[in-house]
Design a protein around this nucleic acid. Sequence first.
DNA 1: GAATCCATGTAATTGGTTACATGATTCA
DNA 2: TGAATCATGTAACCAATTACATGGATTC
Lengths: 202, 202
Amino acid sequence: MNKQATGKKAEKGLQINRLGYNILGVLMREPMSGYEIVSALEKFRPVNISQVYPLLASMEEKGLLTTETIAQTGKPDKKICHLTPLASETLEAWISGPTEEPVVRDDFLSKVYSFWLTGAAEKRALINERIEWLDSEIAFFSNALEALQTHYPEELDDPGKWQFSRDILFRRRLALYREDKLWCLRVLSRVTDTDDKNEADT
Amino acid sequence: MNKQATGKKAEKGLQINRLGYNILGVLMREPMSGYEIVSALEKFRPVNISQVYPLLASMEEKGLLTTETIAQTGKPDKKICHLTPLASETLEAWISGPTEEPVVRDDFLSKVYSFWLTGAAEKRALINERIEWLDSEIAFFSNALEALQTHYPEELDDPGKWQFSRDILFRRRLALYREDKLWCLRVLSRVTDTDDKNEADT
DNA sequence: GAATCCATGTAATTGGTTACATGATTCA
DNA sequence: TGAATCATGTAACCAATTACATGGATTC
């Protein structure tokens, strides 16, 4: 009956952004500093430290965390962030709430979108570069998975432990990167077989 | 020898952003209006119309495109964008230049990251929701692929036609979504088998 | 001697999203 | 009657990136 609340910014107050929820996610494992949050998160998603500090400040204001300053010699003071009970409430409410659709930003795909304009050699070069990148990612995540398995052989099978989450996320990455590589190889064969016209240089 | 030019914003002048290159990509197929650009691109990536109009204006200023105004009855005038030779140069230079790493923004994965905190029922609900979404995407892209194949049976095998690009990109989506679904099913079985503690409510 | 790690932050800019403004036509 | 489609655009805001500022310890 009310004509208001048409937009998506319905409830205000406790709103944090995506990065905010990711930060809650790591801090649920153990309290740490802003700097440490970045190194913990960057295997999962790209993070800019400059975005983290102001966010932590506003999250502290909202009562989601408290900071404990630790003096260090030769280094600046460290501010360890501890979550409050409100934080876990907020995180769990977010998890059970609606989930937005994923968005990928991939220049490689944008280039493939337009690469019918280029010659076969250039197409192959682009794809081969991608394969190299995929190989390095596959190597990285295989190592990460192995390390997880040797460090926490028990916890991986307990869905109530954070290691379970890491394990399944690493496996997902691996599976998708491998599938992506297969796709690259299939494309390569299609490009090589039916060689296209503007092939003069090289 | 020069202390300058440390940052990433080396050369200025002709710079357009990602969306700009995507717009060049569609317009290389055929000239169209801003409104049509959005509907053509949105199968490939999310686009906001409000971002397109100012971008098109600045691209016209930079000499990448010219606009042809078509008067319509009952509707506002339509502005068809035609690319200039500078545009294809710019696009090809971008394709052969360095490619940035992909970035994904996926709330579902962020939730999985933290979902060791929740109960098994909530875990299953989250995964099942994802499976439903994946199924709908898979259905959409299978249809799109079939439509492509019936409309352009010849062009699909010619890497010099834009239909080739569409074809491989659709196939990639399908392959990755299917792999993602398999992963979901594997996770589901791991959650169901080793039922975790906080299981009280239904 | 230069680069990287540790550790914090602010400021400026670009990119992306939502809201607002306008208005006829078609469809449920 | 209300929503959706066509069609253009502006303004405000939020998110993300880059640059700037500081400074000791360590590593190449």
